[in-house]
Amino acid sequence: ADKPIKWDLAGYYGMGTPPTKLLNEFAAEVKAATDGKLLISVRPVGELPYSPPEYHRVVGNGSIQMADTAWIAGDIPSAGALTLPLLVRNFTELRTAMQAAQPGIDKELERFGAKPLFWYSFPVANFWGTGSAPQSLQEFAGLKIRGLTPEHSALIAMLNAAPATIATPEVMTGLQYGTINTAITSAFGLTSAKWDSLIKWGYIVNLAPTPSYIVVNQKDFDALPEDIRQTLVTVAAKHQEKMLDFIEADEARLQKELADSGLVLVEAPDEEIEALVKQVEPLWQQWHESRGDTAKATLDAVRSSMKR
C-alpha cells in the first residue's frame, strides 16, 4: 500500500483545550474516512516555533501543511470586517456574514499560497472585569480596559475609559494588581487563559465573534489524490458546523457556570446597545476608508448581509 500522507496542523490553543480536542476529533475522522491515507497531527500552540499571527504565512510557504489561525486582519484585512465592534453579534449572524466575506478572505489568503479549508469561531467577546460590576455603560468611565484592535481602543475611549495595550502574557498580572481592570474577551477566553479566578463581572453587549480559519497549503491540497481531497472537504464541512455548535453551547454553559459561582453578569438593555451602535458606526466607516479595495468590498457585503 502507499505510504500515508502526514500533515501537521498548528493549533491556536494549548493542549487539552476544547478547540484542540475538537480538531483532534476532526483529524481522527479524516484518518478513518480516508482509511488512514491522510494523517493529520494537531500540534498545540507552542509546540512548533511559529506564532499564530503568522500561521497563514508558514502554511503558505509550505513550512507546515495546515494551521488554525485567527487575528490575521493585518495581512487579511477582509477578516477584520467580521470583528468590527457590534457589526456581527452572534453565531447565526456570523454564518450569514461569513458567506458575504468569504470571497474577499479567500482572495487575500491566496496571495500567501494558503486556502481556508473550513472555519469556526471563538465566542462573541464582551467586557469582563475585576472590582464591582458596572450597571450601565455610563459606569465604564475611568475603567482601564485592555482592547485587542484599534477599533476596540476607539470604543473604549468613547466610553470615557482608558484603553491599555498590554501583551497577552502580562494580562493576568495586570488584572491581579490592577494595572488593568477589564479585558475584552469571552467566558471561554477567560477560562482557557486562567483569568477567570480574578474576574468578578461580565458586561454583555455582544461586541463581535472572532472567526478562526483552518488554512491549508494550496499546493499540498492540490497534490492530494482526488478521492482523499473530496473526503477531506466533506469531513471539514461537517466539523465546521460541529465546532460552531459546540463552542456556542460551551460559551453559554461557561457563562452560566461563572454566574452560578458568584460572578455578576449584566445584560446591557437593547436601547443601550442601539445607542452604542450609533456611536461605533463612524468606526466602521473609518475602517472602510483606510483599507484596500478587496476589504472595502468585503465590508460592504457584510454590512448589507447584516442590514446594518
Binding site: E170, G174, Q176, G178, T179
Partner: peptide, 10 residues
Amino acid sequence: SLYTGMVTPT
C-alpha cells in the same frame, strides 16, 4: 511598583 499594580513585570 509591580505589586501595587502600577506596572507589569516588563
